[in-house]
Design a protein around this nucleic acid. Structure first.
Length: 969
DNA sequence: CCTGCCCCATA
DNA sequence: GTATGGGGCAGGA
């Protein structure tokens, strides 16, 4: 067996793209040459050669080759000219790397193979065929799903990036059929990324079902008449030829004329100096050192070779500028964001890629708008973006709408642009716009058409705005949410960032057309030409992003999360934001006065104690007074070296008997309450509705929680008596009540379930006081008559566990020594060993996959978890431990919110859901309905996991009604 | 006028 | 120890 030849075929092209997208951009230090993908590729190749039998394939290759796609069209374009027609061109900073990677492969003494007219996959298929005939085994190194059809006895696939081995069973799991039928399934299901048409209405699931029933594609098409489902039968008959063409497109051709025979792929020894010389030229310090060691090459004596980088030149400025050395994990090269990259980015903008802002259409006639609508109807989807004069969707006026139907084909429909040169009385509408009352009905038909998918970026804004124009946007896909579901933790999800990341294109900044600061103008004042270039680009970019992200949903098994947890929440939040909550101005203003009075009194005392007046709100001045003039013992310092004046420091000083620090703490509390809440909130009362409408962000936390802003209603005070008073200003309209319903200990319950801790589960089942029970387990004291201090300690530990406990943090929280805290933690783990196992397992999962998951399958990525910086790594580990707990709890309340409105209507209640505060929901309803509604709300929340999941712990919800939020909570 | 920092409100 | 948003200050534009 040991002598059996084993051929490794590396799918080079797909690796280039994966490496490029998965890794942060790197540039060569000396001149800014982009080399991120080259670095990723070389590391992968080196690892592959090094690990041998310990690797995923379990063998050491005797033969190896890396296969690339050649430039230009292939025979597939002759079969179908639209094949891969939607592919955007490679990003600017990736282009010079193709040649570098091929040269790198040769430097490894490995053949780099490509063949004009064929894709890498076909060449691989051909070699597989030949190898099997020659009696060799094959390992395909790659991730492209098309390659799965080649899996058979003697042939496996390994995906080194996902660390997965793909053999027969994995293929069946993905396609529902054996590898030899994968082409048939793909022929039916099609592929939107490669633009393989398939048969409409048939996806992978249905395709597998049909193929399993009929045996293969031809038998299915022959027997299509017998299919029961009307639409499916018709489509199979009508699109039979399209399916046959699709099959030809996805079928990998195993008879490509090859230039190198299998024997030529014999694995050569590494030529140390040659490889080192190449890596040196790229400035890859770490890899150079490793390989020099392994090949016993004296790296210092090897000259860096010249690189073949034709077609790329350093931008003029950046060679001179000193780019900063990179920190984490890089190869001694500069990270993105450095000046070199900035220049490269600007250069790539000027190169403009395929996005041409001047080619967009400005729609000024109704007939043109109708043309766009019918095009949307024909293709079944359209990308949409609205332009307005305000960031607040509750107050904004519609200024224009942009649409896109395919990359590069986009338009802008100006509707509310004004004559810019006039003063505030305005010169009325600018010329050449379709009157709003004519355009709106057309748009309404388009945007509400159930057969047209509306694609947008952050559609919550557009949906809320349009709803005020009596348009209910539906159905829709949101690229913000797609990106969030797929890449939480990898990067942000704003359009500009996504565009730069995926398209290598920087959209026109809003500032550029509207100006900035005091001179900023609203969009209705922007000239129509500029507005068209800016607005249509947004629709164009969004459409392209959708084409990239949407197919990933299915291939990465995230469709359910997107369709059940993410997309349906958007309309729910639109309704909540639109409703708003009543806030009593009088109460706030009275409180403001009280706080001001308290602050004034304290200020006098403080200045007296300090011996002179100073700005109490300035931490710098306060620090000078305390630790300079008064000579108090300074405690901690901030990271910039200044004395810390945080509440904990001031509390410590107060405990030592100093008077001033305590007064400052009290002053700060009042100052915070006044400026952040009682003074700011009235400014958020909408003049039309008289209520406060917060804005919820669906995609700004990594864990799946919502975030609230403008104003943030998720941090209204509750802990102190003074602060609580602010809650009395959140009121029900007269005749109504507020209901507050909150999950009791949801995160600890989730922890008990996920980590499967018997004692915790039992305690929750029995309805025990969980902190007391923890204390009792740890310190052996009975729950009855327990010292409150003991319970407090246990409570802090329970919270600590959820946050990924550290002795340092617990010590800080409890004001005890680090060793003492360490003892507590040890005791805790002794009593609950399952928790330690959970923590270790979670960290391992994060390291293995780069992400962790919630109970409903939401993924949270932690690419930095392998950081070599111990502080950073420890932080990522704690976050990774916390994320499944916090995230699962977030998923649960999301499910409750998604179902709530329907459940209330069905129960005949007119209660409306107004706010969410992570584990709490606030409703408003007519007083007489309270009694009947409370149990509805409770049961929707408590049964939110059902029916797809049954927690092994009961969920408990406390709900009460009152006239204001303080009393209801 | 913008940005980073410090501090602090919530779950 | 986790996750956020926001106000005021101070320094550099």
């Amino acid at each position: 067996m040991a002598d059996k030849p084993h051929l490794f075929l590396v799918d080079g092209s797909s690796y280039i793209f994966r490496a490029y997208h998965a890794l942060p951009p790197l540039t060569r230090k000396s001149d800014g040459l982009p080399v991120g993908a080259v670095a990723g590729f070389c590391n992968m190749l080196w690892k592959l050669l090094q690990e041998g039998e310990k690797g995923l394939s379990g063998v050491d290759p005797s033969h190896i080759a890396v296969i690339f796609d050649a430039k230009g069209d292939t025979f597939r374009n002759e079969i179908y000219d639209q094949y891969k027609a939607h592919r955007p061109p490679a990003p600017e900073d990736l282009r010079p790397q193709f040649g570098l990677i091929k040269d790198a492969v040769r430097a490894f003494n490995i053949p780099a193979i490509e063949q004009v007219g064929y894709e890498a996959d076909d060449i691989i298929a051909t070699y597989v065929q030949k190898a099997l005939v020659a009696g060799a085994d094959v390992t395909i190194v790659g991730s492209d799903k098309d390659l799965m059809q080649l899996v058979q006895p003697g042939v496996v696939m390994v995906d080194t990036m996902k660390n997965k081995r793909i053999s027969h069973d994995e293929v069946v799991e993905k396609f529902g059929v054996a590898p030899d039928r994968v082409v048939d399934v793909q022929a039916l299901a099609g592929d939107s990324v490669d633009n393989v048409p398939g048969v409409p209405g048939i996806g992978i699931k249905t395709a597998a079902l049909l193929i399993n029933e009929f045996g293969d594609l031809e038998s299915l098409l022959a027997g299509a008449e017998t299919i029961k489902q009307k639409k499916r039968r018709e489509n199979l008959i009508e699109f039979a030829d399209q399916a046959r063409i699709s099959r030809e497109l996805v079928y990998l051709k195993p008879d490509v004329p090859l230039e190198m025979e299998i024997d030529d792929l014999f694995r050569d020894d590494l030529d140390g100096p040659k490889l080192v010389s190449y890596l040196k030229a790229l400035n890859f310090t770490t890899l150079t050192r490793r390989i020099a060691e392994a090949t016993e090459t004296e790296a210092e004596n090897v000259e860096a070779c010249d690189l073949n980088i034709e077609g790329w030149e350093p931008a003029p400025k950046m060679a001179a500028e000193e780019s900063s050395a990179s920190a984490e994990g890089s190869e001694g090269t500069a990270r993105s964001g450095g000046p070199a990259d900035l220049a490269a980015k600007i250069a790539s903008e000027v190169g403009a890629l395929s996005i041409d802002n001047q080619k967009y259409e400005m729609v000024t006639e109704l007939t043109a708008l109708e043309r766009w609508c019918s095009e949307a109807k024909r293709i079944g989807y359209i990308s949409v973006d609205t332009e307005t004069d305000s960031l607040d969707a509750m107050q904004a006026n519609l200024v224009g709408v942009s649409l896109a139907t395919e990359p590069g084909k986009a338009c802008y429909i100006p509707l509310g642009h004004t004559k810019g040169d006039d003063d505030m009385f305005g010169g009325g509408l600018a010329e050449g716009q379709i009157p709003l009352d004519q355009a709106l009905p057309k748009l309404k038909i388009l945007l509400e058409d159930p057969s047209i998918l509306k694609i947008g970026q952050n559609l919550k804004y557009d949906a809320l705005l349009l709803s005020r124009y009596d348009i209910q946007l539906n159905p829709f896909d949101d690229t913000l949410l797609l990106s969030y579901v797929l890449d939480a933790g990898q990067h942000g999800h704003g359009m500009d960032e996504l565009s730069e990341f995926w398209l290598g294109h920087k959209p026109i900044p809003f500032k550029e057309i509207a100006g900035t600061g005091k001179k900023q103008i609203t969009f209705d004042k922007v000239e129509l030409d500029k507005a068209t270039a800016y607005a249509a680009e947004d629709a164009d970019v969004t459409l392209r992003l959708w084409q990239i992200l949407k197919p990933r949903l299915a291939s990465e098994r995230m469709t359910t999360v997107y369709e059940r947890l993410e997309r349906p929440l958007m309309p729910v939040l639109v309704r909540m934001e639109q409703r708003g909550i009543a806030v009593d101005r009088q109460i706030l203003s009275r409180l403001s006065g009280n706080f001001a009075q308290g602050m004034g009194a304290l200020e006098e005392e403080i200045h007296e104690l300090a011996g002179k007046p100073f700005n109490i709100g300035s931490p710098k001045q306060l620090g000078d007074i305390l630790f300079g003039e008064m000579g108090l013992p300074g405690g901690k310092k901030t990271k910039t070296g200044a004395w810390s004046t945080s509440a904990s420091v001031l509390d410590d000083l107060a405990a030592e008997g100093h008077e001033l620090p305590g007064r400052v703490v009290a002053w700060r509390q009042l100052s915070k309450l006044k400026s952040t809440y009682t003074d700011a909130l009235p400014g958020f009362i909408n003049p039309v509705t008289g209520r406060v409408h917060t804005s919820y962000s669906l995609a700004s936390t990594t864990t799946g929680r919502l975030a609230s802003s403008d104003p943030n209603l998720q941090n209204i005070p509750i802990r102190t008596e003074e602060g609580r008073k602010i809650r009395t200003a959140f009121v029900a309209e007269s005749g109504n009540k507020l209901i507050s319903a909150d999950y009791s200990q949801i995160e600890l319950r989730v922890l008990a379930h996920i980590a499967d801790i018997a004692q915790l589960k039992q305690a929750f089942a029995d309805g025990l006081d969980i902190h007391a029970m923890t204390a009792s387990e740890m310190f052996g004291e009975p729950i009855e008559g327990m010292d409150p201090m003991t319970r407090r300690r246990a409570k802090a530990i329970n919270f600590g566990i959820i946050y990924g406990i550290s002795a340092f943090g617990l010590a800080n929280q409890l004001g005890i020594s680090r060793t003492e805290a360490k003892d507590y933690i040890d005791t805790y783990f002794q009593r609950f060993p399952g928790i330690r196992t959970y923590m270790e397992d979670t960290k391992q999962t994060a390291r293995d996959h780069g992400y962790v998951e919630t109970i409903f399958g939401r993924k949270i990525h932690y690419p930095q978890i392998t950081s070599k910086n111990p502080q950073m790594r420890a932080f990522m580990e704690r976050a990774a431990i916390n994320a499944p707990i916090q995230g699962s709890a977030a998923d649960i309340i999301r499910r409750a919110m998604i179902r709530m409105d329907d459940a209330l209507i069905k129960a005949g209640s007119s209660a409306i859901m107004l706010l969410q505060v992570h584990d709490e929901l606030i409703f408003e309803l007519p007083e007489p309905e309270v009694e009947a509604t409370l149990p509805v709300i409770k049961s929707v929340m408590e049964e939110a996991c059902m029916p797809v999941m049954q927690l092994s712990v009961p969920l408990k919800v406390d709900a009460q009604s009152a006239d204001n939020w303080d009393e209801a909570h």
